[in-house]
Computed example of a mutant assay.
Amino acid sequence: MKVESRIFDVITAFFFIAAIAYTFIAKEPVGIAALFLTGGLGLIIGTYFRFVSRRLESRPEDNPLAEVSDGAGDVGFFSPGSYWPIGLAGAAALVAIALAFFYIWLLVIGAVLLFIAVGGLVFEYHIRPAEH
């Protein structure tokens, strides 16, 4: 996670320097606020990654002397075929359309469908404990 925190540190520095330069050059308040807020968001993410990297063991990506074979092995479980991401994308699109046209009734329907799709995706492989 140290590599990721360094990436966000660079992003944060860039946006803060760009915001300071934009303040003196353009003097346009919305752009100034957007650049400073973007730098602040980069700072939040970089700080989170730095905080998490202290708690986790070192990964091959964090070791400059690591070999490619150091990262070999299981990465995790990935579903071989799931239809929940399609439903999730459709529900998210419905919520976006409802927000764009400000249809509250459609927003409620889309939010319910979005919660159902997220729940279906999260609990797709959940197995109940056996009853005795």
Rank of each mutant, 00 (worst) to 15 (best):
A72M: 11
L41K: 10
A130G: 10
S79P: 01
E131Y: 10
R50E: 01
F102S: 11
T12L: 12
F16D: 03
G76I: 00
L56Y: 10
E124W: 03
D9H: 13
F51L: 09
L107Y: 02
Y125P: 00
A93G: 12
P64F: 08
P129G: 09
R55Y: 10
W105M: 09
V30N: 13
G110R: 01
R6S: 05
S53V: 13
V68D: 14
I32M: 12
T38A: 14
V3A: 07
L114P: 01
G46Y: 04
F36I: 15
G90H: 06
V122Y: 00
P129W: 13
L107H: 03
A66T: 07
I109A: 04
R59E: 15
L65V: 12
A92M: 06
I109Q: 02
A13C: 04
G110K: 03
A13K: 11
F102A: 11
Y125Q: 02
L56W: 07
N63K: 04
R59K: 14
G110A: 05
F24V: 08
S79C: 03
F15K: 00
A89V: 09
I97E: 10
P80D: 07
R59C: 13
Y48R: 09
A18I: 09
I17L: 02
D70M: 01
E28I: 04
L35V: 08
I97M: 14
L94I: 03
I86H: 15
A96C: 00
G40E: 07
T12W: 12
M1Q: 09
A21P: 08
A96T: 03
V30H: 08
I32H: 11
L88H: 07
S5R: 15
E131N: 15
Y48D: 10
R59Y: 15
D9N: 14
V122R: 03
I45E: 06
W84C: 11
F16R: 04
L37W: 11
E131S: 15
I17A: 02
A96Y: 01
I44H: 03
G40Q: 06
A130L: 13
E124L: 05
F51D: 13
L41P: 02
A91K: 06
A89Y: 07
I25S: 10
